[in-house]
């Protein structure tokens, strides 16, 4: 039997998830209830959208740590603007507004990265600080609890309702659509457009990409613009679901999202990563984090579990690579 498919990260992550689910389900059957599944889906909405943006950047060989600040900027500024000038605005206006702000901020990243050829980590580190500082300093630093009515209505909307045995109902929020659409579009883009191939080409062999005729600055603007756009949408979704806009939220969670994407098989050296892997990576992190309570483990263990997942998830491929390298040392010596 050919077991080589087992070496694929996606398959490994999927198996881990299945195994984990079975164990949790055996210990606590609540895990397999509709209510719990809906909860898990809801918890993945925002992280899922962020992860698609982060995936693009990582495939292109870069890293973006500013997306959380972009999200907070777009989210907070949008809510504040709407509260001040157009409280009755429908929800889609908020999405467009936040998306546009995110896009603009993403272009700032792209400008520094492509015009001055600066390392992406450093640029986004700087803009993370700038964007967040700007929000707190110039836009506001208090939590906004009175949200525009369309936000409240959005928060209450339901895609699916399932009655529970105890008389209540379990609801699935339609915002999951956003995540699904973001994932689908990212997948189509990466696999079926020349622009998407350009993202992979940039991460795989930058010089060759230029020689082949890819327009590298344009790809970079596209990547960082898209991250910004997605972050703006994720930010506004976060605020709507949470029914408040807190400028201190989200920032600080950037490394968690990056970890989820890396667990899904994307490598920080670039050129590698898939949407399906990223979806699985996000699922793994969300399921692990949300299921501890079902296992009777206090939620204070969340961070420990996340740490263990990251170390195991990156350690195993590293050991594999070490072994492979030892085997191929000789070819290296020759070349």
């Amino acid at each position: 039997m050919n077991l080589s498919f087992l070496r694929k990260t996606e398959v490994l992550v999927a198996l881990t998830i299945v195994l984990f689910c079975i164990i949790v389900g055996i210990i606590n059957p609540v895990f397999f209830t509709v209510a719990n599944v809906f909860d898990l889906l809801r918890s993945s909405i925002v992280m899922g959208i962020f992860a698609m943006g982060v995936l693009l950047v990582i495939i292109s060989g870069g890293i973006d740590v500013s997306f959380t600040a972009v999200a907070v900027f777009a989210m907070y500024a949008t809510v504040k603007l709407l509260n001040a000038y157009w409280v009755e605005a429908p929800m889609w206006v908020a999405f467009i507004l936040a998306g546009a702000m995110g896009l603009g901020l993403g272009f700032i990243n792209a400008f520094f990265i492509s015009r001055f050829n600066l390392p992406t980590l450093i640029v986004t580190l700087g803009t993370l600080s700038m964007f967040h500082g700007f929000v707190l300093f110039a836009i506001g630093n208090s939590i906004i609890r009175s949200m525009p009515p369309s936000f409240t209505a959005f928060a209450r909307s339901t895609l699916l309702e399932v009655p529970l045995s105890n008389g209540g109902v379990s609801r699935l929020h339609p915002a999951i659509f956003l995540t699904v659409v973001a994932a689908l579009l990212t997948w189509l883009l990466l696999d079926y457009t020349m622009l998407g191939r350009g993202v992979y080409a940039l991460g795989g062999a930058r010089e060759a990409a230029g020689r082949a005729g890819f327009n590298i600055p344009r790809i970079q603007y596209f990547i960082y613009g898209t991250v910004g756009l997605l972050s703006g949408i994720a930010g506004i979704t976060y605020a709507a679901l949470g029914r408040q806009a807190n400028p201190q939220d989200i920032v600080g969670s950037e490394l968690n999202v990056i970890a989820a994407v890396v667990l899904g098989g994307a490598t920080l050296t670039g050129g590698r990563g898939t949407v399906i892997g990223t979806v699985l990576g996000v699922a793994l992190v969300v399921i692990m984090n949300n299921s501890l309570i079902l296992l009777g483990i206090p939620t204070t263990w969340q961070r420990v579990v996340l740490g263990v997942i990251i170390i195991l998830g990156t350690g195993m491929p590293a050991l594999q690579a070490q072994r492979a390298q030892r085997r191929s040392q000789i070819t290296e010596g020759i070349a």
């Binding site: 263990v308 990251i310 990156t314």
Partner: peptide
């Protein structure tokens, strides 16, 4: 183990 430092310490930091 040979984990890239940024990931290794991201994980251990979380730990």
């Amino acid at each position: 183990i040979g984990i890239p430092p940024i990931l290794a310490t991201l994980g251990s930091g979380s730990l």
